[in-house]
Simulated assay, not measured.
Amino acid sequence: MTDRGAETIAWRDYLGVATGLLRWSPAAFWAATPHEFWAAIEARRRAYGKATAPPPSDDEIQAIRRRHAGG
């Protein structure tokens, strides 16, 4: 078979998005069609937006440490 400009599919990256971001099981990822995968990505973007949360402030970090100090 010859390579006619075909791109390599980054399966590991897509699996990471599905299991980490979408919280799918690996079996759900491998059972999904590409349409289902991209529809889920788009739905998440619409639901949560593209913005990321700001990092916690020093006071918030200290409060977290106090809550979990005995753990």
Rank of each mutant, 00 (worst) to 15 (best):
W11E: 03
T33N: 01
D3E: 07
T33C: 04
F37A: 12
W11L: 02
P56A: 01
L15K: 11
Y48P: 10
L21G: 07
S57P: 02
W24E: 05
S57Y: 00
L22T: 09
R4E: 11
I9R: 13
A63M: 04
G5F: 14
S57R: 05
E36R: 11
R46K: 14
G16W: 15
W11D: 03
G71D: 06
R45K: 14
H68L: 02
D59K: 12
P55H: 14
D58R: 08
I64S: 07
A43N: 05
T33I: 02
A51L: 11
A10Y: 13
A28Y: 05
Q62E: 11
P34G: 07
G70L: 01
I61V: 05
I41E: 08
E36V: 09
L15Y: 04
P26Q: 10
R4V: 14
G5A: 00
G16E: 08
P34Y: 03
E60I: 00
P26K: 07
R23E: 15
L15T: 04
H68K: 02
A27K: 07
A51T: 09
A47R: 11
H68W: 00
G49I: 06
L15V: 06
T2D: 13
L15W: 06
P55W: 10
R67A: 01
V17Q: 03
K50A: 13
A10R: 12
D13M: 10
T52K: 11
